[in-house]
C-alpha cells in the first residue's frame, strides 16, 4: 500500500524538477536560433541554402570565400563603428563619472537646479529632436562625420548614466571619501582611487550598455552619413539589405563580422555584466 504512494510523488517530483529546465531550454534554443542560422548559412551559397536551409553544409562544401567577401565588404564599416562606439562610450562614461561625483559628493549652491536640468531630459522624448538635430549638425559642419555620432551619442546617454552613477556614489560609505581627503587626495584623486575602483561593475555595465546602444544605432547614421567610407554598421547593413539579388551566405558572413566585436566584448565582460545587472545596478 505504501510503496506506490511513495513512488508516485517521487516521479511527479522528478518531472516537476525537470520541467523548468525543458521550458527554459526550449526558449534558449529559439533565442539561439538566429545565431545558429547566421553561422551555418554563412558557409553556403544561395543554391546550397535553398536546397538545405536547416542543417550545416558538409565541411567539404563550405564556402570560405563568403567570409573573405564579407570581410572586404563590411570590414571598414566595423572599423568605423568600433571607433565611434569606443570613443563615445569612453567619453560618455568618463563625463558621467565626473558629473555624478559633483552631484553625489556635495550639495553645492545651484546643484539642485543643475540636477533638475538633467532629469527633465528623462521626460523629454528624443523623437522631436531628430529633425532639428540634423540641421544643427549641418550648422556645425558635422554632417557626414563620425564625430557627430560620437557627440550625439555622448549627450544622449548622459542623463541615464548620471542618474545611475549618482545613486551609486551616494551609497558609497562617506568615511572613505573623508579618509581619502585626510590622506591628501584631491577630487580627481578621490575619483581615481575611490570612485572608479569601487564602482567597477556598475561602470562596466553602463559602458557595455552604452557600447551596445552605439553599436546598434542606425537612424542617426542613416540620416547624416553620406560617404561610403564613413558608413557605420547601421547604414552599411541597411544598404546591404537593399541589394536586389541577395547572396545570403555572404550577407550572413557579414552579419557574423558585425557581431564579432560584441563577441569579444562579452567574452571579457560577461561576468561583470551579469553581475552588474543582477546586483540591481539599474534600480527602479
Amino acid at each position: 500500500m505504501s510503496a506506490p504512494v511513495s513512488t508516485r510523488p517521487g516521479r511527479a517530483g522528478r518531472l516537476a524538477a525537470v520541467l523548468p529546465h525543458v521550458v527554459i531550454g526550449a526558449i534558449l534554443l529559439i533565442e539561439f536560433f538566429p545565431l545558429y542560422m547566421m553561422l551555418q548559412v554563412a558557409f553556403k551559397d544561395n543554391a546550397a541554402f535553398i536546397d538545405n536551409p536547416w542543417l550545416p553544409a558538409p565541411l567539404a562544401d563550405w564556402r570560405w570565400e563568403n567570409w573573405w567577401f564579407a570581410l572586404n565588404l563590411i570590414g571598414p564599416y566595423v572599423a568605423n563603428t568600433v571607433f565611434v562606439a569606443v570613443t563615445g562610450t569612453v567619453c560618455s562614461v568618463a563625463l558621467a563619472v565626473l558629473g555624478a561625483y559633483f552631484f553625489a559628493r556635495y550639495r553645492l549652491p545651484g546643484s539642485g537646479v543643475l540636477w533638475s536640468l538633467f532629469m527633465v531630459l528623462m521626460l523629454l522624448p528624443g523623437i522631436a529632436n531628430l529633425v532639428p538635430l540634423f540641421t544643427l549638425l549641418k550648422e556645425l559642419s558635422l554632417l557626414n562625420t563620425l564625430w557627430a555620432l560620437i557627440a550625439v551619442g555622448v549627450a544622449g546617454g548622459q542623463v541615464f548614466n548620471l542618474f545611475v552613477l549618482r545613486n551609486f556614489i551616494e551609497d558609497l560609505p562617506k568615511d572613505l571619501f573623508e579618509a581619502a581627503e585626510m590622506d591628501g587626495a584631491g577630487h580627481l584623486q578621490q575619483i581615481r582611487h575611490i570612485v572608479v575602483p569601487m564602482s567597477r561593475s556598475i561602470l562596466g555595465t553602463l559602458a557595455i550598455m552604452a557600447f551596445l546602444g552605439k553599436w546598434n544605432e542606425f537612424l542617426l547614421p542613416l540620416v547624416i552619413l553620406r560617404d561610403r567610407e564613413l558608413f557605420t554598421l547601421g547604414v552599411g547593413l541597411i544598404y546591404l539589405d537593399g541589394e536586389y539579388v541577395k547572396q545570403w551566405g555572404q550577407i550572413m558572413a557579414a552579419y557574423c563580422f558585425a557581431a564579432l566585436p560584441l563577441i569579444i566584448l562579452f567574452l571579457f565582460t560577461m561576468r561583470l555584466f551579469v553581475k552588474g545587472l543582477s546586483q540591481g545596478a539599474i534600480k527602479g
Binding site: L95, A96, L98, G99, Y101, F102, F103, Y106, L108, L114, L117, F118, L121, L124, G126, A128, N129, V131, P132, L133, T135, L136, A151, V152, V154, A155, G156, Q158, V159, L162, H187
Partner: peptide
C-alpha cells in the same frame, strides 16, 4: 573647480538635447 566637473556633461546636453528640442 568642482563646477568644472559638471560642465562637460552640461555642454553636451545643452547642445545636443536642449537646443534641438527648443529648435523643434
Amino acid at each position: 573647480r568642482l563646477y568644472l566637473f559638471v560642465v562637460p556633461s552640461l555642454v553636451m546636453v545643452a547642445t545636443f538635447a536642449y537646443f534641438p528640442a527648443a529648435s523643434a
